[in-house]
């Protein structure tokens, strides 16, 4: 890709891509998928979805988003809106399956190729303890924590994604941190 083309891809906002997709440009949709898929997958994996579920849920999140673009008015970030859809999807699946939340399996904390097991062991143990701890939290606390700690969202954006208020999101976050500190350390 040439330099000007690369710059134009970086500068294209989500709102522009959505507009182009609605005008019939399907490449804009794939650009949006490439841009946000990893964050949505990490959020879903963190909230307890297994590897196979994550792939399926990410795909379904985007399918629902592109079919309901009229529902996105650009007030919230596109990614925040995707988190909202992913959260609802995960909750629906959970209810349908009528079983407990699956913890992230050991697969989820496998070492990446080239990683030194000795240096990463502590971090992996902490991740494993954290994923177990997250499985014990109420859904809203868990998702608020993930959107804040894992995704770095502000409370106002979290409130939009999860249908709560910024003040309530803040309290949920501190509840979650307090509980997780006891479990991880």
């Amino acid at each position: 890709m040439s330099a000007p083309a690369a710059r134009s891809t970086v500068l294209t906002t989500d709102a522009d891509l959505v507009r182009r997709y609605r005008a019939g440009d399907e490449r804009s949709a794939t650009t949006l998928v490439t841009r946000h898929a990893n964050a949505i997958a990490r959020f879903l994996a963190g909230s307890g979805a297994s590897g196979d579920e994550v792939d399926d849920l990410v795909q379904e999140t985007f399918v629902r988003a592109f079919r309901a673009l009229d529902g996105w008015r650009g007030e919230a970030q596109f990614r925040t809106w995707l988190f909202s859809i992913a959260s609802n999807l995960r909750r629906d699946r959970y209810r349908r399956a009528a079983r407990g939340a699956q913890l992230v399996s050991l697969d989820g904390v496998d070492l990446e190729a080239g990683e030194d097991p000795a240096t990463t062991l502590d971090a992996r143990e902490a991740e494993l303890a954290l994923s177990r701890g997250l499985g014990t939290l109420p859904r809203l606390q868990r998702e608020v924590f993930l959107l804040r700690a894992q995704q770095g969202l502000e409370y106002s954006a979290i409130a939009v994604a999860l249908g709560t208020t910024p003040g309530a999101a803040r309290v949920h976050y501190h509840h979650a941190v307090k509980r997780l500190k006891e479990l991880v350390t």
Binding site: G51, D55, E112, A123, A126, T185
Partner: peptide, 22 residues
Amino acid sequence: VLEAARGLGAAVANRVDPERLG
């Protein structure tokens, strides 16, 4: 806790290939 949260789910998410997903 926060450092652990930052990396949480990365291994699973890396298996999702956005190029194929589009």
